[in-house]
Computed example of a mutant assay.
Amino acid sequence: MRIIFMGSPDFAVPALNALVEAGHEVAAVYCQPSRPAGRGKADRKTAVHERADDLGLEVRTPRSLRSEEEQAKFAALNADLAVVAAYGLILPKPILEAPRMGCVNIHASLLPRWRGAAPIQRAIIAGDKRTGVTLMQMDEGLDTGPMLLEWPIEIDSKNAGELTEELAVLGGQALWRWLADTEQYPPRAQPAEGVTYASKIDKSETQLDFTQDAYAVERQVRAFNPPGAWFEFMGERIKVLSAEVVPGSGPPGIVADDHLKIACGERAIRPIVVQRAGRTRMHPDELLRGFPIPKGAQLNPRGSE
């Protein structure tokens, strides 16, 4: 097929690779424009842009697809299909209808659960046992189109970064499978029941809320790694990148021993990997040698001030 690929972050790269490896013609790659990143704030291309450059593919980075000019450029590619994976722009109706077979999206949840922007993090926070990828025929709604193929996996104790990597690979495999025999996977309407929405993550949510049960706090740690959930002490934010639930009690946010066990609404958590701003990851005992947080200290999470 002649295919337009639309994606931006690392999550989308395996799907682009799958198209090329399967021998499809990639007419063009659409991704988000380069943006300032890193300490020097130099413009950095998206992961998909860099991979497309490596493959010698044409890359387009419009800031919007709403203009008639951009829509005409898209239609002029005369594509059979557009594949979309975490692209980052809304596709207007003329874009959705331009390819002969429309636009297919790789969504990182088992629809209709977790439609929207942050399905991986929301699934972890909610304590879901499993998630997966859904290949979906796109329409004008928010992840409401007919499903083509679902592929579930167990969440287990994975954090968001680990789960994203696994789902990215799975998305590429699902795309490969569907393209190899599209007639085997006819479109199916999404169930009317079980719809949930994965709203965009607000930065305030990454502050650990020790008023919750320790199991909910541990899920918060996993859901927001990367970039890392955090607590504040003595005016400094400390990221908690890994933690375990342990027995314990006390006022939420109180340090319960000399090894940074932290009391929660029920039970307690013990950080396993922490990080100070501008420092490397470390064990809590290493942190405490250079930044003492004594037993009985009140940490400053949301809701415990």
Rank of each mutant, 00 (worst) to 15 (best):
P187R: 04
V29D: 07
D156N: 10
P186M: 03
K129Q: 09
P146I: 09
A189H: 06
A42Q: 13
L142F: 04
R60A: 13
L57M: 06
R267Y: 07
E165V: 12
A243S: 15
A118L: 02
V29W: 10
D213K: 03
A52T: 11
A180K: 14
A263H: 04
D181A: 13
L179C: 13
F231K: 03
L81I: 03
K41D: 03
R270V: 08
L148Q: 05
F231Q: 03
R113M: 00
P112Y: 01
E50A: 14
D202A: 06
L91A: 05
D43C: 10
T134V: 11
W151S: 11
K129H: 09
R63I: 07
Q220P: 01
D10H: 04
Q275P: 10
A28S: 15
R115F: 00
P187I: 07
H283L: 15
P226L: 01
P152S: 05
A277S: 15
S8Q: 01
L111Q: 01
G250L: 04
D143E: 02
A117P: 03
N225E: 09
I120K: 00
P292I: 14
A189N: 08
Q32T: 12
A76Y: 02
Y185M: 09
A75T: 09
W176C: 12
P187A: 11
L299Q: 08
A263E: 02
V245Q: 02
I120Y: 01
C103G: 07
R113N: 00
M101Q: 15
D143F: 00
I262Y: 01
I106S: 04
Q190G: 06
M136A: 02
N225I: 11
P191Y: 08
E165K: 08
L299S: 09
A75R: 14
T206S: 10
L208A: 00
D143N: 02
L170M: 07
A47F: 06
Q71A: 12
G127M: 04
V83C: 04
F210Q: 00
G235S: 14
H283P: 15
E244A: 14
A18I: 04
S67D: 14
F210C: 01
A118H: 00
D285S: 15
V26N: 05
G290I: 13
V83M: 12
R276M: 15
P119G: 00
R60P: 14
W151A: 12
I254Y: 01
S64V: 06
C31H: 03
A268I: 03
R222C: 07
A79Q: 04
Q137N: 10
P226F: 02
A108S: 14
K261G: 02
A75D: 08
P252I: 05
I120F: 01
P186T: 10
A12D: 05
Q207P: 06
I3R: 01
K45Y: 09
F210G: 00
Q173I: 11
R281Y: 11
M282H: 15
W230L: 03
S34F: 07
A243W: 10
R267L: 09
E236S: 14
R44K: 11
I125E: 11
V26H: 10
A76W: 08
G194W: 00
P33A: 05
F11H: 00
E68Y: 11
S157M: 12
I153T: 06
Q207S: 12
V13T: 09
G253Q: 07
D128Q: 00
